[in-house]
Computed example of a mutant assay.
Amino acid sequence: MSRRNRAAPPARTWWQVLRAVAHDVWEQGRTIELLQRSMAFAALFFVTLVPLLIVIAAAFPSRGSGIAEWITDGLGLTGKGATAVTRLFVSRGQVLSTTTGFGLAALAVFGVSLMAAVQGVYERIWRLDRGPWHAVWRQTLGLAGLIGYIVLAAWSSTPWRHSTFQPTARIAATTIGGVLLFWWLQHLLLAGRVPPRDLLPGAVATVAALTGLRLFSRLVFSPLLVSNAVSYGTVGTVLVVQSWLIGVGYTVYGGALAGRGVVRARRGP
């Protein structure tokens, strides 16, 4: 049969593409054990990255409250809920007076383990071989980029405070910065083995999922945190924050899964 007479495959509707993406995300999520990976992400983030962020935020010259402000914003907290989270973290002066150079270096080394875990999941999502051990510089650079974005997100509420321009600037900084971060982070950790154009949908999906998580947190986690803080004290607050970090892990990995699903659906069966 000639190429001219060969029938072209029918175009897929948006509903068919959406169903294909959802099915692919579901199947791949089961394959990579998305729940377990997200719980591991939350544990590593809280144990390795939060202490490092506390030290960096303490030395950062801004009027914000550093990591506490970023968490309260991500959870959509105000009033008693924000106060409960802020109490988890010691004052800036106490952090700077008790932190040593060795302790800071140890925190940075342990923080790289979080990026190693993220890299491993990204490689499983795209079905790639494990990267070589000597590529740890990529994980270190990725950690620096993630910290820089969190600092930017926390600092974005400081300029033009109480002005009409401030909310727009903050949304632009966190949204555009988030898309660029997760686009670059995937490309960096995967060592360029996936074309950049195929990684962009995952970055957009990740930021969209983070936005949805913030709305969900405002409705669910915010009142839950207040009630847990009253009932269980600091332990209750930690449990809610840890649950929110599991949700963050879901969005980071689920966004990459959705991006890969979009690429596969776009290419067709």
Rank of each mutant, 00 (worst) to 15 (best):
R3V: 15
P9D: 06
V17F: 14
A20L: 08
W26Q: 02
E27M: 09
R30V: 04
L35V: 01
L35N: 00
Q36A: 15
F45C: 02
L52I: 07
L53D: 09
A57W: 09
A59Q: 01
A59E: 04
P61L: 10
G64N: 09
S65M: 04
I71V: 05
I71M: 05
T72Q: 06
G74H: 03
G76L: 02
L77E: 02
G79S: 08
G79I: 09
T83S: 15
G93T: 00
T100G: 12
G101Q: 00
F102M: 07
G103D: 10
L104M: 14
F110Q: 08
Q119L: 07
Y122M: 10
L128Y: 05
H134E: 06
A135D: 08
Q139W: 11
Q139K: 13
Q139Y: 12
A144V: 10
I150R: 02
I150D: 00
V151Y: 05
W160V: 02
R161S: 12
R161Y: 15
T164R: 08
P167L: 07
T168S: 01
A172Q: 02
A173T: 11
L181I: 05
F182D: 01
G192N: 04
V194P: 11
P196I: 07
V204Q: 10
V207W: 11
A208S: 06
L210N: 03
V220A: 15
S222T: 08
S222A: 15
L225D: 01
A229N: 09
V230P: 02
G233A: 09
V240Y: 06
V240P: 01
Q242V: 13
Q242D: 05
V248D: 04
V248A: 11
G249R: 00
V252R: 02
Y253E: 00
Y253D: 00
L257H: 03
G261E: 07
V263F: 14
